[in-house]
Write a protein that binds this DNA or RNA. Sequence first.
DNA 1: GCTTATAATCTACAGGGGCTTATCATCTGT
DNA 2: ACAGATGATAAGCCCCTGTAGATTATAAGC
Lengths: 152, 152
Amino acid sequence: MTDRPDLAAMFLPLTRALIDAERPVLAEHDLSMWAYGVLLALEEGPLRTQAALAQSIGADKTRIIGVLDDLQRRGLIERVPDPADRRARLLSLTAEGRRLRDSAQAGIRRREERLLARLPEGDREGFLRALRALAALPPHEITDPPPEVTDP
Amino acid sequence: MTDRPDLAAMFLPLTRALIDAERPVLAEHDLSMWAYGVLLALEEGPLRTQAALAQSIGADKTRIIGVLDDLQRRGLIERVPDPADRRARLLSLTAEGRRLRDSAQAGIRRREERLLARLPEGDREGFLRALRALAALPPHEITDPPPEVTDP
DNA sequence: GCTTATAATCTACAGGGGCTTATCATCTGT
DNA sequence: ACAGATGATAAGCCCCTGTAGATTATAAGC
């Protein structure tokens, strides 16, 4: 294995830069990063509880309340009591929310594609495939990777 | 281009997990993340000013003072006035500092290699090559990538 | 019915980190 | 020699975030 910087030492500044790249696009859409994260998380489908949402985007459950308040006030999400358990709130995107998310995401994608275009043609696909594979791993398997198994 | 999550949406949780992975190793060596960053930055060779060091690790120049104080007190770095410009402090690793950095880095590497081992054999090399290419770009080219040019 | 547990919410608090200003020493240009 | 710039440092402020308790509504088990 050839010598290389620590993974985190490469990832951290890169991530910062990627977030800086998103910032102006999100600002145009009046979205904070947390708010955008919520819209992305709800893309997959409605969620049953706010706590689940908070965990899925790595946020504190008390912290996203204000974010949800704002999104709801702007008609971007719906937050209705679960009829089966009225303590919980069912969260889902409205059509308007979906539209705003698509618009923001499109702007972000455009920049990202320009960035990816700078990678050597031959590495690009493998890079994205590996990245998706790592991103799909549960966090604890990254923090403390099991010794060998590739195919359980 | 196939559909995929936003780059930042994949990078951010991955980076967090990688940092969590480093935390216990660094704790064993009594190093904060900033302190480790300093040791890594000085690996390349001595630096002429603290401000340059701060910038190179993405820290605030006023914030690393305490970190440097601690590292110096522990004999891990040297901080001597530049004879050519006595306002500046020449920063360099001591032998002990180099030893500690190597030890911490070795622990971190071990985990990282286990993680990389989980990637499909064929993608691993391209992944690392692409990652290094991106990490080598100046931040503003990531934030706002130029339209085309790969070879200026 | 009563007790215990859970979801959401609010408030208060503490820590980390960035940013700003002021100070001191030193250098550079005139 | 003097004025203005620069490096290091210290102190204070502010923001973001995470944590902990208290509160309310609701559920579920006994």
